[in-house]
């Protein structure tokens, strides 16, 4: 069962009509129905294309959070062979908001780390809705250190509303854990590529996204604070989230223009949730291209390029 976002209503209506006609055709009525179905399908596809070509930043936020959007686990299953998850930060606990481990990407040994939101109630609770606690970031640090030691390129998948804001996270040093994770990203002696597949939520995202190449899916968002959070602070009115989304420039297209990300990965018509396989395949190609650019560089160059790339951000606006 496909779930529609509010703004997709015109498409939803057309597609519902197509379904109705299909049912009618199956009951064996008229030949002309087939033609009508084709016509309506084309119309629905056109409407979808037009809608998605002109998404507002707020609509993109909704698409980025779409419950049926492919998550880290889907990317990992399709792109990584021999994926072997590793658990725990060796200090306090295991946090499944961040999943990570070793595997092979197109034959090459890699380390993979990603934020997972979960796709049903049970999973969402297990993964804490993709909002990591300090132990999640400390596990990421541990994995990045292992990756460095074994010269494994690192792929990270970012999809979080933000780091978990709670008492237990604070008492275990959420801020320090994020800072150390960002630092571990920068210290990596091997190539790293991150992909923002849904929501890139603030410090919780940057902790995994300080990589040589930063890629974003076409309808993903990446922001210093959620549009709702910015609206409630700056406008004192969380219903102004749409204005905040527009004002803060959170789309992949804006971020490419500002030089904050390196490339945009095209999504299938109607968003990644309409054709997950296609979106994931395109992501695989983009990751491979990212690594291609870094192939054969000595560790110091890899580190320096990464550092210089981030230092350069904002200096030529």
């Amino acid at each position: 069962m496909r779930s529609y976002l509010d703004f997709e209503k015109p498409v939803a209506e057309l597609e519902a009509k197509v379904e109705e006609l299909r049912a009618l055709a199956q009951s064996g009525d008229a030949v002309a129905i087939g033609e009508e179905i084709g016509r309506l399908e084309a119309k629905a596809a056109r409407a979808l294309d037009e809608l998605y070509a002109a998404l507002t930043p707020w609509q993109k936020a909704l698409v980025a959070r779409h419950p049926q959007r492919p998550h880290f686990i889907d990317y990992c299953a399709a792109l990584i062979d021999d994926f072997t998850p590793l658990a725990g930060d060796r200090k306090f606990g295991e946090d499944e908001a961040i999943v990570g481990g070793f595997g092979r990407f197109r034959g090459e040994s890699v380390c993979v780390i990603g934020q997972e939101k979960g796709s049903n109630t049970e999973e969402r609770i297990r993964h804490n809705f993709g909002m990591a606690k300090p132990e999640g970031y400390r596990k990421a640090v541990r994995l990045m250190e292992l990756a460095g030691r074994f010269s494994l390129p690192v792929i990270t998948f970012v999809d979080t509303a933000g780091a978990y804001p709670g008492i237990n996270a604070e008492e275990r040093g959420q801020a320090e854990a994020i800072a150390r994770s960002t630092e571990a990203c920068l210290a990596l002696p091997c190539p790293s590529v991150s992909v923002i597949i849904g929501e890139g939520g603030s410090g919780g995202a940057i902790a995994l996204a300080t990589t040589n190449k930063v890629l974003m899916l076409e309808h993903s968002i990446y922001s210093v604070i959620s549009p709702e959070g910015a609206a409630s602070i700056l406008w004192r009115d969380s219903s102004r989230a749409q204005d905040a989304a527009t004002g803060m420039k959170i789309t992949a297209q804006d971020l490419l223009k500002f030089g904050v990300i390196d490339a945009i990965i095209a999504e299938p018509s109607g968003g990644a949730h309409r054709d997950a396989a296609q979106a994931i395949a395109a992501t695989g190609d983009a990751i491979a291209a990212g690594f291609q650019d870094l192939a054969g560089l000595p560790p110091d160059d890899i580190r320096n390029r990464r550092a210089d790339k981030f230092l350069a951000i904002g200096r030529r606006l």
Binding site: A179, T182, E183, C185, L186, S202, G203, I206, T210, Y222, S223, V224, G247, M248, K249, I250, D254, L255, F258, V260, F310, L311, I313, G314, L317
Partner: peptide
């Protein structure tokens, strides 16, 4: 916006 967030890795 995001240019502010980028100060976290830049200062690091």
């Amino acid at each position: 916006g995001i240019l502010s967030l980028m100060q976290m890795p830049r200062t690091t």
